[in-house]
Design a protein around this nucleic acid. Structure first.
Lengths: 143, 143
DNA sequence: TTTTTTTATACCTCTATTGGGGAAAACCTG
DNA sequence: CAGGTTTTCCCCAATAGAGGTATAAAAAAA
């Protein structure tokens, strides 16, 4: 289970450290792809395989489903973590997410998300004001 | 069951002691999250897992559900209590709750709440003055 | 008052993070 | 196809920071 948010910097060789707590769960092979809302998704290989199967089964009928599947499948790339637990972020993904120097790595239960620090803080502020009453939402979930 | 309120100080390494009475119930692994009214919630791992599974089950499709899950899941952090019964409070949560030196740890039946001492006393004063109105409303609830 | 538990601070060890160097592989170009 | 250039990967090192431990003081209990 991935939890928490961490800040790292991408070095000039496009290497990005993964939080030590995430490393055992991710394993040595993981998949990096375009995510929603201008961030990147990072999955353990097994989780990715399940998701990819679901995505390719999404039927060709709807244009938006096709677009979504293309976004994630076409942009996917397997990444090997080096001895220090870092992954290499390819140019086209770095550009997609607008990653500058400072980057936020966030754990979201079954996946890891990678955001540019600025984009992340803007998104959080926006969401906090829109989501409104957290207590109400939690009650809907039966907590 | 968590009961009572205690005052502790966070050391310069962001470590915070948990009341000895709470330790057996929390176990060695627990989860610290953003709470309501600028405090932090601390759950035993098992309790949290139920909530997290529900949040992650909301799926990727809707933008507002995504945002809500991101706030709650990325905002959470698993904390291991050390040999002296202390937990580590990450920067972003310390900042969220405005924790300074003195901190109040309060038991609320099934969860633990963590407040900055100043925020806590202000909140209490405010609530005590409204206590009459609240009692009226509780009567309506049949308490 | 004595004993025991607990809190807080200081210190020390170890791990994590970030940087760089160099080898190998891939790519482009002439 | 050969030479040169760029990119990727692997190894190593230094520093800083985090995590663990011990001790002394304080509080609580007997």
């Amino acid at each position: 289970m991935f939890l928490g948010e961490y800040t790292y910097s991408i070095d000039e060789k496009k290497r990005l450290a993964i939080p030590p707590k995430f490393r055992p769960t991710l394993g040595s092979r993981s998949v990096l792809t375009r995510g929603l809302d201008r961030c990147l998704f990072l999955y353990p290989l097994k989780e990715w395989e399940q998701l990819a199967a679901k995505l390719s089964g999404l039927g060709l009928a709807q244009a938006d489903a096709r677009g979504f599947a293309r976004l994630m499948l076409a942009g996917a790339m397997e990444t090997n973590t080096d001895a220090m637990g870092r992954i290499l972020v390819p140019d086209y993904l770095k550009e997609y997410a607008g990653l500058e120097k400072k980057v936020v790595v966030a754990g979201l239960y079954d996946r890891v998300e990678i955001w540019d620090e600025k984009t992340w803080s803007e998104y959080k502020e926006k969401t906090e004001s829109e989501v409104g009453d957290i207590a109400e939402r939690l009650k809907e979930l039966g907590v």
